[in-house]
Amino acid sequence: MLTRRDTFAIGLGASAVALLPATAFADAVEDWITAYTGGAAMEEGGVTITAPEIAENGNTVPVSVSAEGATEIVLVATGNPTPGLGRFTFGPGSGAPMIATRIRLGRTQDVVAIAKMADGTFKTTRVEVKVTIGGCGG
C-alpha cells in the first residue's frame, strides 16, 4: 500500500519529469536499456531498422526491424513518455528474425533497436524519425 509520504515522493518525481523532460527522458531510456541488457556492452550495427525519415503523423509510424542471428529484438523510443515499444521473441517456428509493425512517436526522436543474439550478446542501432506537426490537426 502507498503511504502518504510515498505518494508525495511520486508526485515530486512526476513534477521533476515534467520540469526536466530531456534529461529525465535520457535517464529513463538509459535505465530501461540497462535493465534489458543487464548492463552488457552492445555492438553497434548488425541490426536494420526501416522507418520513414519524416513521419506524416506520429500516431501511426510504420517501422520494421531485422537482425540476422537474433533470438529477440526490443524497440525503444527515446522521446516518448515511456521508452518501451515492444519486445519481439522469435520462437523455433520463426522464419527470420524480423518484425514490421506501427508505432506511436510523440515527437521527433531516435528509435533504438537492440537485438539479443543466440550467444547472449547484444547488437544495437538507431534511426531518427522526424515527426511533423500537421497544419490541420483536425
Partner: peptide
Amino acid sequence: VMVIDVAMEPAIS
C-alpha cells in the same frame, strides 16, 4: 510451435 511472442507497450499504434 512458437513462431513469435510479442510483449506490446502502449506505444504500439
